[in-house]
Design a protein around this nucleic acid. Structure first.
Lengths: 194, 194
DNA sequence: TCTATTTGTGAACGGCGATTCATTATTTTG
DNA sequence: CAAAATAATGAATCGCCGTTCACAAATAGA
């Protein structure tokens, strides 16, 4: 049945995503993925030409989805300040829900092919913030500033503040209350007077 | 001669540091280190119980040195705002001088032992900023805020803005002019909540 | 049903990096 | 200057990983 083939492909993607979410790319070896998907290692290669291709697909898919969410959310707010706050809040909240996955996609180094895909995703991401900053500067809501540097600082601030601390273990960890809101305040203050 | 033993140990550390600075931990294999140090792979194990131990020593040594520099620099400024600016500026400038080394120490994932050392160093680092923030809040220079979150955001902001972009290759890359100053402005504005 | 094609298996392969260890060179000591 | 101790060597070992492939099972088409 051709349906089963679709299902298998989906199961592989899902299993790989789960493993990356739990332990980063390092935990997603082909044998681990195949085991989690209930298939043999060889079977993986009937669905993906290489491990890198599998990882790239996971990454680009997740990133483009997140970028869509971000664009939609910013479109809803009126002022640039609100847009910025909403974007940081949304991204922060969503990243918190899947910390290790976010870490893997944002920061964890891997082989060159995946790295290239990461760079592209990172740029798509940064573009959302850059557009938003440009608009705010044009409107006079934000003072003139280097949007590239500011965008990098914003991404870095919440990456560090809520994604990084998890790197080694898989602790659920009671997050500091209002963590995301605090980061929002930090970023908004920085942008409005940077 | 016992002096030669000291020298060998030092040469190993130096060679390893250089390799990490050039290509991250990934480039610092035992055989590469031994070659660079002019010794055999086996010899490394007369001086260090494992590769991890060698890397941990490099990391903790470098971090404690950087923390010293930071403490000294902040001690020289008067206002908390100046201390903060000086700390961010100094750390940023120094990190830029050795981007890959900074990247490896701040962000590149490795084995659990090195990771543990990194976390400790990261905390020592954060403490400098936290002390500084507490003082500024007490003096009324900064509004009340979560020093933990703010410190993380600051470290993240410049990590992302000047260390990360280097991750894959060893490009010298003309850095954006005044990059460090822009980051300083960003961080100061964020902390002062202006 | 029987054959042809597609899908799945998992042991085997090749590469790489950390670690060990029998052996050799060097230094110390009596 | 021998003999014992110490240091250095680097090929071999081990473990892990991605990938392949000869074969087995399942499915499709006649």
């Amino acid at each position: 049945m051709e349906q089963r083939l679709k299902d298998n492909r989906e199961r592989i993607l899902k299993a790989a995503r789960k493993l990356v979410a739990q332990g980063g790319f390092r935990a997603a070896s082909v044998s681990a993925v195949s085991k989690a998907a209930g298939l043999s290692t060889g079977a993986i290669y009937r669905y993906f030409p290489s491990k890198s291709a599998l990882m790239v697909e996971i990454l680009t898919h997740a990133v483009s989805h997140e970028v869509d969410v971000l664009r939609e959310i910013t479109a809803r707010a009126d002022s640039s300040t609100d847009k910025l706050a909403a974007a940081v809040r949304s991204f922060g909240t969503r990243a918190l829900e899947g910390r290790n996955l976010a870490y893997a996609f944002i920061a964890e180094p891997t082989d060159p092919e995946v790295e290239a895909a990461r760079i592209v995703g990172r740029e798509d991401f940064g573009d959302v913030f850059k557009d938003l900053l440009h608009e705010g500067i044009d409107r006079g809501e934000f003072p003139a500033q280097s949007v590239d540097v500011t965008a990098a600082c914003i991404v870095g601030a919440f990456t560090e503040a809520l994604v990084r601390p998890v790197a080694p273990t898989t602790l659920p960890e009671a997050a500091e209350p209002d963590l995301v809101e605090k980061i929002v305040v930090f970023c908004v203050a920085a942008v409005r007077r940077a």
